[in-house]
């Protein structure tokens, strides 16, 4: 294929939220947001105690980066966190394409929300599970937490045993979407 004439570097970036809401910023490094038809400046500050905050329309917003890995971010503003992946127009397109393909046939993994110990597994491989049903009991911080399924489907694989210690984000169970 011949070299297509095109300009490579575009500075537009999109923050895509977990609920698929896209926020596009043309030139984030310039610290300006187009907001309801006007361009509003964003100021980033750090106070003498070491807190970072954003000043936006004369109000202070406490800022904390909870997680940051490659293009995945979890940003906390005033104590509420928001997860995003930062995408370029190209990678966003890719994401949409792949989502379309995945929706048709896909298994969902249930991951450990925190480190802990498996106390009980309430499902069996091949069994059915409904959305919201408890599938595993995980003990962490002296509390027994019910891990529930967020999809309805068939238990495809169970990757842990009773009394196993698991790390955060370890895959516990894989469910084939019904």
């Amino acid at each position: 294929m011949a070299r297509a004439a095109k300009k490579k570097k575009t500075t537009s970036l999109i923050a895509l939220s977990a609920t698929n809401k896209a926020y596009e910023f043309k030139k984030p490094l310039e610290k300006k947001i187009k907001y309801q038809g006007e361009v509003v400046e964003i100021k980033l500050h750090e106070d003498s105690k070491g807190f970072s905050y954003i000043v936006w329309k004369k109000k202070k917003y406490l800022l904390d980066v909870i997680e940051k890995k490659q293009n995945r971010y979890t940003i906390m503003i005033n104590g509420v966190w928001h997860s995003f992946t930062v995408e370029t127009p190209i990678s966003l397109k890719r994401k949409r394409y792949l989502e379309q393909q995945n929706n048709s046939s896909s298994s969902v993994s249930i991951e450990a929300p925190m480190p802990g110990k498996i106390i009980d597994i309430m499902v069996e491989e091949g069994g059915e599970v409904k959305e919201g049903e408890p599938i595993i009991i995980l003990e962490a911080m002296k509390m027994q937490n019910e891990i529930t399924s967020h999809v309805t489907g068939i238990i495809h694989a169970i990757s842990v045993k009773k009394n196993d210690s698991v790390m955060k984000d370890d895959v516990l169970i894989e469910i084939k979407r019904a």
Binding site: A15, S17, Y23, L29, K31, I33, L44, Y61, Y73, F84
Partner: peptide, 11 residues
């Protein structure tokens, strides 16, 4: 707040 968080991620 969500907008500001989104902005900061891209920034």
């Amino acid at each position: 707040e969500a907008l500001l968080a989104a902005f900061f991620a891209t920034y």
